[in-house]
Write a protein that binds this DNA or RNA. Structure first.
Lengths: 211, 211
DNA sequence: CCGCATCCGATGTGATACTG
DNA sequence: CAGTATCACATCGGATGCGG
């Protein structure tokens, strides 16, 4: 879409930068997983055409959303990472993800999901510093934890709560706020608190009434 | 883009629905100005090709984002309006607008702006119920007011504060939180409170530090 | 392998014209 | 006013090539 909307409007301007096909998915990937190599991105995007990916990265770099960095010799490779401007897209992607969840049906099987999806999914699902509690998630073979408001891979040392279930259970926990969709050991209250930080907790109840 | 991203991911799914060119601008228009006719949309979008607009509206309707409604005889006409699902995009568009503002330079002249832009701009800029105060905005010939957390066209009866200036001043007020960029009569504090509800007030200070 | 650049058929876009 | 029809053209997606 090299063609701009040519409107004096922040939304049109934002879309001029990240509105092209694949662009926001590149940002999603960098937000959820951190700095990545070209071919990692290409794989994660379900193969979007190497030329397209190259074009998007070049454009995003030109716009100051993404930065290219060369790693030191031991692992000589180039990685792409978000600039501060690019990091600023987190709330946008976060809201978009929650809106998308409304019309996305629960996952059918864990096979659909790429290995290592859980930490990224949690990072995208929850705001940055939602709670000081420590919660461990064991979802369909994946393992990740909330520690001090941050998401880590792997188990937690002394979790306040452990959430156990499959991807469908996590879906219902996040979308329907159904604490019964997963198995929770420890302090259920901290999980409820975490859910209260979701955009949906303000929106969903309002849907039946007038918005 | 009739072609879906075909990923099990809420963001990819959201973009399958509103990620096509022009789609989010249609939503923006309906969010900011309420139900509109086909040709009003076509004008507001800077002429995006009637076939494209028709295709987008059809797709958005099919996806349950937009609804077509026929007005009663007196003003026999068809209008498009957002469904509850479509209204749910408000936080998304809201965040996107604030991100876009970061790299959008101040307006050069008021000529750039379509008549009646102010109420829509205020509705997009500020969250839904930010304050109970009553504030009147007089920006470059445009007139709009915050009353009870809602934006109205025209003057306010008994405003707590009156904000006077041009479009550039409003820009700096919203982006830089510069209360000096406009002329404020009455209680400055209620304007400062309103600014505190912006996403930027949480993000901008954090940019110099680590995000 | 990694990081692209090039070529090409399929598809989407944009301006104009035209119809109910 | 509310679209549909048409057509030149840009872009996309997929395959392939190719130097480091």
């Amino acid at each position: 879409m090299s063609k701009s909307y040519e409107q004096y409007c922040p939304i049109a301007h934002a879309l001029d930068i990240v509105g092209e096909r694949w662009s926001l998915l590149v940002v999603r990937e960098l937000l959820a997983r951190g700095p990545r190599r070209y071919s990692d991105l290409h794989d994660a995007l379900g193969g979007c055409g190497t030329n397209i990916l190259a074009a998007r990265l070049k454009e995003l770099e030109r716009q100051g959303v993404v930065r290219k960095r060369r790693l030191p010799p031991p692992a000589a490779s180039t990685v792409y990472e978000l600039t501060e401007l690019g990091e600023g897209l987190r709330p946008v992607v976060h809201e978009l993800a929650h809106w998308g969840l409304r019309t996305l049906s629960p996952p059918t099987a864990d096979d659909d999901l790429a290995p290592g999806w859980l930490p990224g999914a949690l990072r995208l699902a929850f705001p940055e510093s939602p709670t000081t509690a420590c919660i461990e998630f064991r979802i369909g073979g994946e393992l990740a934890s909330f520690v001090g408001g941050e998401v880590r891979e792997g188990a937690a040392d002394t979790p306040d709560a452990v959430v156990d279930g499959d991807a469908g259970g996590l879906y219902h926990l996040v979308v329907d706020h159904d604490l019964g969709a997963v198995d929770i050991r420890g302090r259920r209250a901290v999980v409820a608190e975490l859910l209260a930080t979701l955009p949906g907790s303000a929106l969903l109840p309002a849907l039946t009434a007038a918005e």
